[in-house]
Design a protein around this nucleic acid. Sequence first.
RNA 1: UGGGGUGUGGCCAAGCGGUAAGGCAACGGGCUUUGAACCCGUCAUUCGCAGGUUCGAAUCCUGCCACCCCAGCCA
Length: 552
Amino acid sequence: MCNDTIKDFIRERVARDIREERVSGGVVTRFPPEPNGYLHIGHAKSICLNFGIAEEFGGITYLRFDDTNPLSESESYVLAIQKDVRWLGFDWESRLTFASDYFPQLYEFAEELIKRGKAFVCDLSFEELQQSRGSLVEPGTVSPYRNREVEENLDLFRRMRGGEFPTGSKTLRAKIDMHAANINMRDPVLYRIIHAPHHRTDSNWCIYPMYDFTHCICDALEGVTHSLCTLEFADHRPLYDWVLENININFHPPQIEFSRLGLEYNVMSKRMLSQLVEKRYVSGWDDPRMPTLSGLRKRGVPPAAIRDFCNRVGVTKQNNNIETELLDFCIRNTLERTTRRAMAVKQPLAIEITNFEGDDLLLEAPWHPKNEELGVRTFTFGRTIYIDRDDFAMSPPPKFRRLVLGGLVRLRYAFIIECLDVESDEHGTVTKVFAKYFPSSKSGSDTSGLKPKGVIQFVAANNALNAKIHDYYRLFDVPTPRREQFEQEINPDSHVVHHGFVEKAVCSVSDSPSFQFERLGYYFSSPDDSPTQEHLVFHRTVPLSQGWKPKG
RNA sequence: UGGGGUGUGGCCAAGCGGUAAGGCAACGGGCUUUGAACCCGUCAUUCGCAGGUUCGAAUCCUGCCACCCCAGCCA
C-alpha cells in the first residue's frame, strides 16, 4: 500500500470546502450504482474515492441504489453489488438507501414544478419527441403541449400516476429551453409511464422519474456535500442545478466530475460485459478473466490490491487507459509478503532417479523464504519425481539455466541432479528423463561442491496430488477493444487448463486459499469450486514477473 | 458550422510565475537454492503546436491543432 497522503483535485476541493466552512455538518458522499449489472474495477475507483474521502475527512457515505428503471433492474443485482462493496472493504453501516425510497417525495416535487409552471405533460410520441429535439447543431422545436394550463397539467399528471394512460403515451417534461446548445436542457423528460412492477415498490407506481430529476434531489435529501460522478455527466450538471433551483429544497450539492478508469485489454462498459456473459465468451459475470469485482475475487485478487491500485491511478479529468502491468504489480505486491510458497508442476515430465533406492526421503522447507511466522512444511523426494516440461530442453536456447542432457540442476529445497539420458516417443518428444542425484548436495547441508546454474521446482510422485490448474491471460488481443467489433478482438487463448501436480502439503493449509507456486505465479483455490476426489482446482491470480524470456 | 471536457516521458500522475515530484514499465548492475522478492543506478534541456507578456512561463494572454463525451420516455 502506498502510505503517502492521497491528493487529487477533488480532495483538494473537499479540504478547501471544510477550511472555508462550507460543510457545516461534515462531509457526506455516496456511491450510487444502478442495480442492473455487476460492479467492475472502474466502479472500484468510484467506491474508493467516495468512501475514501468520507473516511479521510471524518464523514459518511451512503450506498444508494439508483433504481428508477424497473425494466432493467432487479434484486439479484442489489445483492451482488452489496456483496462486492463489502468485499472491497467498505461499510455503509445503516446508510443503505434506494432512489425508490424517495418516490413519494419525488412525486411531490414534480407537482411543485408543475404548479410553478416549470413542467408540463407532453403527449408527443417517442418518435415525435426524438424529432423535435433537434440535433447537435440545430435547435429543437417546442412541443405543442407546452402551453397547457397548470390545472390541466396537474390533472393529467395525477391521472398518469393513477394508471389511466398506457406505457409511453405521455411524459412530464421540464419547461426550459428548446434552443439550448446543451441538449439536456431542451425540455428534458422528468417522468415517464412504465406499467411494470418494480423490485422494491412492486406495482405502487406506473410512472417513474428519470435520472436527471431523481439524482440531484436524492443527493440533496441525503445532504450529500460532494456529488462525485464521471465525466460524461458533466453535460447534465446544468440540469442537476436547474432542478434544485426550481423546487423548494434547502440543500444544493455541487456535482464534481472525474474521468472513468480505462484498463488496457479490457472493456468496462456494462453493455459489452453483459454481451460477453450472454454470448458465453466467458462463464459468467464472475469469470476470472472479467474485470468485474466478482471476477477478480474468483481469480484470487485481494481487495487490498484493488484499493492500492485505485489509489495509485489517481483521480483527474484526463482520459486514461491504465496498463495491466500496474494492476499486476499491485496484486503481487500485496500477495508477496503473506502468501505461502509451494511447488507445483503444470506439465509434468517424469524423472527417474536411477541411483535412488528405498523409501522416499522426508524433507522440509519454509512456507515462505522470509516470513518465518508461516512455519515449515514437509515433502518427499524419491525415485520418481516430476518436473515441468519447460524446465527441460534437448536443445536449449541461449542462457537456459534449467535441465539439459548431461547438465546439472538444483531441485528446489532438495538435491542436485544430473541428467544422464532420456526416453522419447516416435515424434521425438521426450517422455522420460533419467538422472542421478547427489546425496551430499541436500539443501542446507550441501557438501558436494557442485554449482548448478539453475534451480527448478519438482514434485515427487509419492507426494503429488492431482491438480487442475487454470491459467488466465488477457481477454482481448488489443489494448483498446472497439465497441463495434470487440467480439472479433477477443483473445481465443485467454484460458488454458493444465492437469498437473501440487505437493500434498497444500492440503494442510486451511487459513489461506492463496499460494505462490514457485517460479510459476500466484494461484488461488476458489471456495466456489466444488471439491472433487480426483483433483484440486487452482486459478492463476497473476504470473510472477519474468526476468528472462525464452526465445529472447 | 453546436455544447461540454482534456492535452506533462511507453502508461498513469505531481506541478497553482522561479527554473520538470512520484509510481508502473523499460534498461544496466548487485544479491539470490524462486530467472521471484529485495537493493542500487539510468530513463522529459522539456510540458499538443505557434506567437505574446515577463528578469523568468508547463504554469498568464492570444490563435491554432488533436483526442474524448452529448441528439434514451437508460443511468
